[in-house]
Amino acid sequence: MTTYKTADVSLDAMIDDLRTLVEIESPSRDLDALKVSAGAVAAMIESRLGGRAALVENEGGTHVHWSAGGDPKVLLLGHHDTVFPLGTLARRPFAVADGRVTGPGVFDMLGGLVQAVHGLAALADRSGVEILVTADEEVGSRSSRALIEERALACGAVLVFEGAADGGALKTGRKGCGTFEVTVTGRASHAGLEPEAGVNALVEAAHQVLAIAALGRPGAGTTVTPTVAAAGTQSNVVPAGATVSVDVRVESAEEKERVEAAFAALAPHLEGAALSVRGGIGRPPMPESASAGLFAVARGLLPGVEGVAVGGGSDGNFTAALGIPTLDGLGAVGGGAHADHEYVLVDTMEERARLVTGLVSALRSA
């Protein structure tokens, strides 16, 4: 508790580092941009914490890994990719005004990265701490999942620096989430001369959308939401193909299994139509039990802070599914993730950096 209250962090320095990261745009899947961004993240870590931050390059982008050495005890986890395409910064530049920091990626989640590093820098002894900053979280973490799980298992506790929930609440649970794509194959024909000769993929897709939407179970926390559909080529042609994308969120492993089995069992309604399904629930649920112990420590350091379960997923889903204590939402306090009004509240940044100091100190001494 003493370490938390007296941690020396500089708001001006945090804002300077945040500006540097934001002004290097880092859209997911842009490997060149991600490499530059990773270099900036590594440079910030090395400048504030010392040592060397390793750049881990693979097909998903460049990840950053730093270790203070010693027996690993806690992993600070985040990502530096954003959802915004190159050029967003020109339209929405980094700014600090009216108590808010704005700019692409400030809340999700560059602000959290900066707070994590500066909070850790306030500790003279950082042994046992690792930082992993990945490059593909916004697109599913396919290239980083194995590394995330490896370092989480080695450390035994994970602090995730995604943005806080509404009002600054920590995220104590998350739904599992994934995307399915259903492809319908029919048969084209002239819509006026011989529509009966075709197999209408759009009509088949309509049947499937209704069946898919019925898979949701609100009482169990399961949402199954058709989100994007496409069909047809011309207004006078019976469509030979259609696709439907579906967003799925679940709270339990049992619901994950039920929904995945239901998608696998989908069958066509129209004679001659065919279906194929790909995708799945890639991020398993993060149960609130995974965060209970860590949240109690956080609440002792920051009395009154709330904990909430949320629908969105993060890399914390992967670590919690391994049975590793995981606490999420430790990043910036603000809002507007993925939106043009994204922001961070300036007057919360020092407090949240000090929370990092206190949590790491408590976990290393446990």
Rank of each mutant, 00 (worst) to 15 (best):
D8Q: 15
T20D: 04
T20S: 00
L21T: 00
D30E: 08
D30P: 12
S37V: 02
V41P: 00
A54L: 15
A68D: 03
K73T: 06
V74D: 02
L77G: 14
T82G: 15
R92T: 13
D98A: 15
P104K: 12
L113D: 04
V117G: 05
L123G: 07
R126T: 08
R126F: 06
G128W: 10
E130T: 02
L132P: 09
L132A: 02
V133K: 05
D136F: 05
E149V: 13
E150N: 09
L153T: 15
G156L: 02
G156D: 11
A157H: 12
A164D: 05
K171G: 01
E181A: 11
V199M: 12
N200L: 12
H207P: 08
Q208Y: 05
Q208V: 14
A220Y: 01
G232T: 02
V244E: 10
V244G: 05
S245E: 13
V246W: 08
S252C: 07
S252R: 14
F263P: 09
G272L: 12
G280K: 13
E288M: 13
A296G: 08
G300M: 01
E306F: 00
V310F: 04
G312I: 02
S314T: 15
F318K: 08
A321H: 13
L322G: 00
G329W: 07
G329A: 06
L330G: 10
G334T: 12
G335S: 07
D340I: 09
T348V: 10
R352T: 00
S361I: 02
S365G: 13
A366C: 08
